[in-house]
Design a protein around this nucleic acid. Structure first.
Lengths: 210, 210
DNA sequence: TCAAAAGTGTTTATAATACACCCATGG
DNA sequence: CCATGGGTGTATTATAAACACTTTTGA
């Protein structure tokens, strides 16, 4: 998945006329799941750096083929918005809230991935995987807005993420555009590994010793 | 897992002297993963009703056996604290914060499961899977406390969960014990299916139309 | 000097926690 | 009538969202 103007997912147009489906592939002997995922992303869409990847769900398909016992392991891969994968033919990005005709089962997987991402955006630093290396608060707010589906205020977003020690200012400023305006401060994520930055939505530990 | 005085997990003592490990088993042909999990819980520990079960992680093990390609799918199963599984020999409950010598890899899985459960406790109704059908607020607070590892106030817990429409009063009262005291109101969970009851830790949608 | 964009300071709203006090029961 | 546990009401605190206003730039 990728967050441009909207949250998008990569889909592959099936040649058998069965509509679109999630891209996938097989695991080779002596290969781990993570290695296989990295290989598919590299070989099929030319993506070397994946922001974040995690497992979603696993399904066993013992009856799909007379001689094989297939096991599907769905993953979410998050790509930075400034990476530009080279798309093979029959593969394209689709806005996640306006999907085309998707093969049975995959729609539910995509929606599960979207909901998980939306949730994690509010209690973790997961956005590092979707953002470029450095960015202004306006750009980051646009990214949050694309994922969450509602407007996000850049100022308040920055204050929340700075308090949680998720962001830090680089000290640089982005020069103003042609239409003028004050130059924007440039930020980066302190950590680029997934971390829960807000453990308690409620039921936090007592503040004083009892 | 189960929450009594502490959060506990079921472990199986390996006969090969390799310490303790998570209970597991194989999936049969023409059987789904969910069916296999239900069967193992039924056959091995006599548990018919599982509060909640979800997948944790999947690992491929192509090299563990010359002729087989094994795929491990770890699950979290949550049992109500009033169910009493019949334990086979060499199987026993262990407090999750005081584990014995656990086979390599399984410790990380158990800790991942614990952390996930702690997180979900604060933004979902997941506690229904650990609680008996009905309970007092004191009992529920003890359960939360066992999982979270810090004291939880019964009154405030009830207020939060009632506002989120997670709990409802049955109307019954639990008679006082031998040492007296006011009878406690009895509650139940409104829904016994997993639901996110608190979607936003931060970055909630604007309150007014822009 | 005006428009545009960024940033600061502050107010407001909300909601969880903390705490003081009252209620119902058994012995 | 007192100890015990449950419950109510409210004060406190924390913090996210909203908003008014200032700063910095380009034309």
């Amino acid at each position: 998945m990728r967050a441009g103007e909207r949250l998008e997912t990569l889909l592959w147009k099936r040649s058998d006329g069965g509509g679109w489906s999630l891209p996938g592939g097989f695991v080779r002997p002596h290969e781990t799941l993570d290695d296989a995922m990295a290989r598919h992303l590299r070989e099929k869409v030319g993506v070397e750096r994946v922001g974040h990847i995690e497992q979603l769900s696993t399904a066993s398909r013992p009856d799909s083929h007379p001689d094989l016992w297939l096991v599907d392991v769905a993953h979410i891969a998050l790509l930075a918005s400034d990476t530009d994968p080279r798309l093979p033919p029959d593969t394209d990005w689709h806005p996640i809230d306006d999907l085309p005709d998707v093969a049975f089962g995959h729609r539910a997987v995509i929606e599960q991935a979207r909901d998980r991402l939306r949730g994690k955006l509010s209690y973790s630093n997961i956005a590092f995987a979707l953002a470029p290396e450095t960015f202004t608060l306006r750009e980051l707010a646009a990214l949050y807005s694309a994922v969450l589906g509602h407007p996000v205020d850049p100022t308040n977003l920055g204050r929340v993420l700075e308090r949680d020690e998720v962001l830090e200012a680089t000290g640089d400023r982005r020069p103003a555009g042609e239409s003028g305006g004050r130059p924007a401060a440039v930020y980066r994520f302190r950590e680029r590994d997934y971390a829960i930055t807000r453990p308690y939505a409620a039921f936090r530990p007592p503040s004083r010793a009892s």
